[in-house]
Amino acid sequence: MFVKTALLVLKKDFAIEVRSREILYTTLLFALSCVLVFSIAFVKEGEPLLDAAAGILWIAVEFAGTLALGKTFERERYAETLRALLLAPAPRAAIYAGKMLGIVLLLSVAEVLLVPLVALLFHAPLLAHPALLVALLAAGTIGFAIVGTLFAAMLVRVRSRDVMLPILLYPMTVPVMIAGVRGTSALLQSPADVASAGMWIGLLASLDVVFLTIALWTFEPLMTE
């Protein structure tokens, strides 16, 4: 029941998105603009600063993710469909899980584009350890999406939600960002520091487990009027 509901919510979001592709395109374009802005700050005399690639990649993901989160729930609010979803005779936590998976999927698509682009533009050997990079990005993106989906969902009824989301989300995801950026830049060293990258992946994975438990637990009382 739980998995089925979550997949149904995911399927619904996917079907809407496939028709308009609005969130996907805006997220991708926004991520590109982020990369452009950062290139101004972190490229000196044609050469990117050391370690800049890792930071740019993760900040672009975080910023684009915030935008996508806001948009996804704006859509639900606009047609009052979130209320309909919550009225459905299904476990609330499953609705949360479906929404969260949708965000993870969307950000994964953005990352597939961002990683080669950042590697190319900032001369970073990002693809030297593909398995470790994928593990880092997956664990980090899931951690971000867990907190982000919960906060975006509870902000739906709040007036200044578009300002509030980044204010709440960025301090809360500091460990995700530190682990992501440090882990990625460990992979960018020559030779790559595989041991530290593994340690950061471990930290991210344990964070995902703890945050997911609390999120599934809090979603129900939070969404009850």
Partner: peptide
Amino acid sequence: YGGPGSDKLGAALAVFGTAN
């Protein structure tokens, strides 16, 4: 600035903050 319902929102934020 959260308006109605902000008490629960804040509570969730504090719980996450502490777990963090």
